[in-house]
Design a protein around this nucleic acid. Structure first.
Length: 360
DNA sequence: TTAAATT
């Protein structure tokens, strides 16, 4: 696994960017209202199965949304893992950044930030860097590249098991010209203290994932921001699911059977609302809001909607709320994990919603 | 040894 000797096309000056983009289509941003907007956000690292409606549901819990778009592959329709949310009120956009940036959803930690005005100059500004010293940190990587422009994101890929650097990373610049200069300046150069030169070139687009690739994705430690017990249970559960997908291991639950029965026979099953599984959450604090429900349930799987029930006059939470999850088994694990969970000084009761109007 | 960042 050594990339010694400069074999092949390692150290020529590649400028293999996508051949010139034809610009005959109408420019996407001409309304003027979006440029330099304090209301328009870009949301990155969304779970693959998250829909535009779920995106709107999540961000709509902050404030009124003017428009919302999940970006999809033009041909397959698959989510590209990012989207845009444009609020009516700039203060809601700011609040969304403060409360939703870093939110864990399934295997992802989403990023919420202001969208830059769309233009050709910010496209294709992403670099692939390899041959990095294994000891180089993300910060050091940024320091190396920052002399060429404003860095939007940086990342060093790590071994899924050991967490050690793979010597491969990405740098996204604000503008393509900055990326071009960085290639000229750093490709085939040795970073300070390094013994081998690095390779810097334009990055490819990420490829579609098979379920096998999904497996390896799970093992690599994502962002270790809030590695609490809940997240660990959720991750353990996802691992079970992925093992099922990859190797056909039977799960403890049988979501397909139950969902099938429900849709075919119309049998009333607790929590089943047609569009998903409705979960009742009891003993929330008066100041609870939707974000706490997203935070608690999001790591367990696909959450399509959350709602805190409030008093009409005081606008305080009446002590309960609802969460809708798409998949039965994820909902079941969330309930099993969160029922009895201590939130602040309260112990939550979590169950599938029933049709009872009151408890006897 | 290439991960979902500009509608």
């Amino acid at each position: 696994m050594e990339t010694q000797l400069s074999n092949g096309p390692t150290c020529n000056n590649t400028s293999n960017g996508p051949s010139t983009i034809s610009n005959n289509c109408s420019s996407p941003v001409e309304s003027g209202s979006i440029e330099d907007s304090k209301t328009n956000l870009i949301v990155n690292y969304l779970p693959q199965n998250m829909t535009q409606e779920e995106l709107k549901s999540l961000f709509g819990s902050i404030g009124e949304i003017e428009s919302c778009k999940l970006v999809r592959d033009k041909i397959t329709g698959q989510s590209l893992g990012y989207g845009f949310v444009n609020y009516v009120d700039p203060k809601d956009a700011e609040k969304a950044i403060n409360t939703l940036n870093g939110l864990r959803l399934q295997t992802k930690t989403i990023k919420v930030s202001y969208a830059r005005p769309s233009s050709a100059s910010i496209r294709d500004a992403n670099l692939y860097v390899s041959g990095l010293p294994k000891t180089m940190t993300q910060k050091e990587l940024e320091q190396l590249f920052s002399q060429y422009g404003r860095i939007i994101t940086s990342r060093i890929l790590v071994d899924q098991v050991t967490g050690v650097s793979r010597g491969v990373g990405f740098i996204r610049f604000d503008r393509r010209v900055e990326a071009e200069e960085a290639i000229k300046g750093l490709n085939c150069q040795k970073p300070p203290g390094a013994t081998e030169p690095i390779t810097v070139k334009f990055a490819n687009n990420p490829s579609q994932k098979t379920s096998q690739a999904l497996l390896s994705q799970l093992y690599q430690s994502p962002n270790r921001r809030y590695p609490g017990p809940l997240a660990q249970q959720a991750q353990r559960f996802r691992l079970d699911n992925l093992l099922n997908m990859a190797y056909g291991v039977k799960s403890r639950f049988s979501p397909m059977a139950i969902d099938g029965v429900t849709s075919l026979a119309g049998i009333n099953i607790p929590g089943h609302a047609g569009t998903g599984w409705c979960i009742f959450v009891y003993n929330l604090a008066p100041d609870a809001d939707e974000s706490i429900l997203w935070q608690m349930f999001g790591p367990f799987g696909a959450v399509t909607n959350v709602k805190v029930i409030r008093d009409f006059n005081t606008n305080k939470c009446k002590g309960f709320g609802f969460v809708t999850m798409t998949n039965y088994d994820e909902a079941a694990v969330a309930i099993a994990s969160l029922n009895g969970y201590r939130l602040g000084d309260r112990v939550l009761q979590v169950s599938f919603k029933t049709n009872k109007t009151h408890k006897a």
